[in-house]
Each structure stands twice: as structure tokens, then as C-alpha cells.
Design a protein around this nucleic acid. Structure first.
Lengths: 270, 270
DNA sequence: GGCATACGCG
DNA sequence: CGCGTATGCC
């Protein structure tokens, strides 16, 4: 086969937006879709809708009402055990193997409002999650597996991953303690941040725009919270076809009742 | 002019269904629409939508979240004082004058589950409302005004106003204490029940179907809860054109996210 | 701003 | 079943 396209999308309720996933799948034609914030239990997942749109294989890690991740695929999925990266019992991480490639799907905690782990337990939880993830990634790096790690990381690591670096330095998602923590995770696995490997640091790239900005495109106060990382072993398949390999499908943000996140895709040449 | 068409519709949230009212108005072309269960305060009423669909005149009696009645009109409205028919401070009744005809718009309490005023305060409130309405109607009858009284009365008075007379005799909306009370109201004003003046007692007529029956038309477990009454002075304008004067627009129940009530119209020849 | 939850009500 | 209400979370 000529390629494998992997999408990641924080869908903010998969039951409400299965039809939007179908519309996106129709145009982007991903082989694998990693979803975050499915906001349902396994038995509430709209499997039928995914079968109908061409994704008969699914691995769903859900819980009641909040969080939840799922990976759906055209090709058979081998579900893999996930280490307890999350200290709370929350459905935030899963991994599968498809066509010999390991795909890790993460929904890192948002972290609440105040960027102070002493006063804000959610921020403490976020930092803890990132630290555990670093340890996990470091341990796994010994295997030298082909890994694509994707998801809503809820951290915008670089200056041009937010609409205003200065104004967001003390805003959760872009504080130094978060961006440095995420960089340690990346370095622990020697991961390539595909978006930044293909686009210069000076170029603004966003994948999320708050619901609270009513003209999201005009004000463009976005952040790059959704990421696709690959292990060095996948450098050539991921990067050799150039910028066309990586796409943020931001027009979905104009749809009726959209998710606040846009889907992101990587075309792997394999 | 050749006629005045008056509609009544329990809309079950006017903010959610302003577009459905527009679609109904387009086909039924009523001059006046009396709404019940608007479920909003006056300042939340979608006046603009009604102006755009040709009803620039409105009299809104609302409250937060529940109940609420409104009358909208193509022709100028003269709001009239409403006596305190409701012992609680609930937005359940209003009256207006349009083209010299008084229009009374009622939302009689539903009455809860148990048809026992001793144990169920909502049923007691319903009976109290009906009793007060009887007194009001009797008092007003002396004036011999031209009155059209409409609304969701939450009572199905006759055997063929419910899908099963026997099975509903002890179900709130069709118990003898309710149907007899409503009959006393009607008699107090010498009102003509237009639906039954035009259709024989043997014919089933329904205006409401529970949301809980998923195939409402097939099971057809309806009730006639919505009524149009006229004073004897309006007998000829109301009845002389025959059955075409009165319509239950039950196809609205097939629309997406419908109200559980269908709109009902009376064409007055004036 | 929008999506879950649970509740009261019809 | 499907409206409102409220609260939590992102």
C-alpha cells in the first residue's frame, strides 16, 4: 500500500458529532482516527455510525460523561495494554497497533484555570500526568518501536503555537512549567513534532479556538493543543513528502455546532 | 375583510420552536396565534422572529422556565386585564381584543399524576383553577361580549376526546371531576365547543400525543386537550362555513423535534 | 460558549 | 421523551 493517514481530533462528544466525523472522513480519508473527549462509556459509543462510514475496527476507552478516547480504523486494530499514566482513574490514554505501527492516543488533562499546583489540584494533576508520561515514554524508548503519538495534549509548546506568547505565558496551556514538561516527554522518546518539522518556528499553527470568541477566524486567538509525534524510525515516511503530509482541517470549525478543536492529519508513506 | 383565523398551540418552548411556528404560519395563515408553554420571560420572547413571519403585534405573559402564554397577531392587539384566575403567581392566562373580538388564552394546570386533591397539590391546584375560571366566566357572561376562548385546557372532556375512555377514566385529564368541572366552565359562559359543534360525538379528535409513544400515529394514543370555544354571538361566523372552519394540524407532530401538541385553528367569518 | 450531569415537570 | 433549571468542566 502507498500510505497510512492518521487523524487526531478532540471531538467534544462523539455521540453529538458522529455525523461530523463522517463528513471529515469523507474528505480527508484517514485510515485511522484518534478521538479525544468522546464523553461516553464504551457501550454508548456509536459503533454503527463508524461502521457505516468505513471504520469497522474500534478501540474505545470511555467513562461516564467526561474525557474518553477512542481509535477507529479501516484496518484491523490490535489493542495494547496501557500503563497507568493517569494517577486518577480517568479514560485519557490508550494505544493500539495497526499495520505494525503503534499508535498512542492521549488526552492530557486541561489543568483548570490557575497555573499553580499548590492551589489548583487540576493543574497539579496535569503536571503529574506529564511527568508520568515522560517516565513511560523513556522506558518504552528502549524498544525502538515505530510509534505515532497523537492527541489533545492541552499544551501549546512554542511561541507561535499561541496567538500571543506574551499574553499566554501565565495562562494554563502555555506556561513554562507545562511547555518544558512536554518538551521533556518529547525528548524522552526522541519524538519528532511533525507540525514543526514541516513548518518553521515563525509560522503560527493553531488547532483549537475557544467557543467564547464568536468570530474565531477573524480574531484568530487560537492555540496548537493537538499534536502528532513520530519516533525517529518514522522520520522518512512522515516527512519525505513534505508539507502535504500534515494538515489542520480548520474549516470544520465553521460547521454548525462544531467542536472547538480542528482535526489534524498525518500522511505516512509506508 | 372576509375572515379571521385564530390558532392555538402549546408550543413547549417558543424559543426552541419559533421556526416551527413560522412554518405552520406559512401554511395555515392564521391572523392570530395563541401560544401556551412558551417557557420564557417576556424579555426572552423571540419578538423579532414573529415580526419577520408577519406578526408584529404581541402580548406576552411569561415567567422563568415554566408555563407562560403569548398571543401574536397580524392586526393590532389591545391587551386587556386578566382577573387572577390562577391562585398561584403563574403565567397561565391572558386576554386581548383584536378587531372587536375578545380572545382569551389559557394554560390550565396539568395536574400531576394522582387524581386526588388530598394527596396531590397539583391536582388540587388544577381543580381550583377550573373553579375560579368558572366564576370568572359566569361573571363576564353578563356583558355578552364576543369571546373566543382558546388554549391548552389539559382536560379531554368527552369519551372520544381520548383514545380509550375506559382506560383513562382514572387518568388525570379525563377524570369525571375534571370533565364535569370543565363542562361547568363552558356552561357558565354558554360557550360553543367548536370542534364538537362541527364533528359528531362518535368521532375521535385528538390534539396531543405523548412523547413517550414513539410511533404516535400508529399507536394513536392521543387526547383532545386543546380547545377553541366561542360565545353564542359568534355561532354563525364560527360554524356557518362547516367543518373547514376547524382544523387540527397534526402533521406538525411528524416534524423534527416537535411539540407534543398539534396546533388547532378556527376560521371565523366576520 | 457548549457539553456533560441530575432534577422537576408534563 | 424532552423541555426547562443548576452545576462542573473545558
Amino acid at each position: 500500500m502507498s500510505g497510512l493517514t492518521i487523524a487526531t481530533w478532540n471531538i467534544n462528544s462523539v455521540r453529538l458529532r458522529a455525523a461530523q466525523v463522517a463528513a471529515f472522513a469523507q474528505e480527508a480519508s484517514p485510515d485511522v482516527i484518534c478521538l479525544q473527549e468522546i464523553k461516553c462509556q464504551e457501550d454508548q459509543f456509536p459503533y454503527k455510525a463508524f461502521v457505516e462510514m468505513g471504520y469497522p475496527h474500534a478501540h474505545v476507552t470511555g467513562q461516564k460523561g467526561m474525557h474518553g478516547v477512542a481509535t477507529v480504523s479501516r484496518l484491523p486494530i490490535e489493542p495494547l495494554e496501557m500503563q497507568p499514566v493517569c494517577s486518577r482513574e480517568e479514560a485519557r490514554a490508550q494505544r493500539v497497533r495497526i499495520e505494525g505501527i503503534e499508535i498512542q492516543n492521549y488526552y492530557i488533562p486541561a489543568g483548570g484555570d490557575e497555573p499553580d499546583p499548590e492551589t489548583n489540584p487540576r493543574f497539579a494533576h496535569k503536571l503529574d500526568f506529564v511527568e508520568r508520561l515522560e517516565a513511560y515514554v523513556r522506558e518504552r524508548a528502549k524498544e525502538e518501536a515505530d510509534i505515532v503519538a497523537v492527541g489533545d495534549f492541552n499544551i501549546a509548546p512554542h511561541e507561535n503555537d499561541v496567538w500571543s506568547h506574551k499574553q499566554l505565558l501565565s495562562v494554563v496551556s502555555h506556561t513554562p512549567v507545562e511547555t518544558e514538561g512536554l518538551e521533556r516527554v518529547r525528548a524522552a522518546g526522541d519524538f519528532i513534532d511533525v507540525a514543526r518539522a514541516l513548518h518553521p518556528e515563525e509560522e503560527k499553527i493553531f488547532t483549537w479556538w475557544s467557543y467564547r470568541n464568536r468570530d474565531w477566524r477573524k480574531s484568530n486567538r487560537g492555540r496548537r493543543l493537538d499534536h502528532i509525534w513520530v519516533t525517529p524510525s518514522l522520520r522518512v515516511p512522515a516527512l519525505s513528502s513534505g508539507r502535504a503530509a500534515f494538515t489542520v482541517w480548520d474549516h470544520t470549525r465553521d460547521w454548525e455546532k462544531p467542536s472547538d478543536h480542528a482535526p489534524v492529519t498525518l500522511r505516512l508513506k509506508v
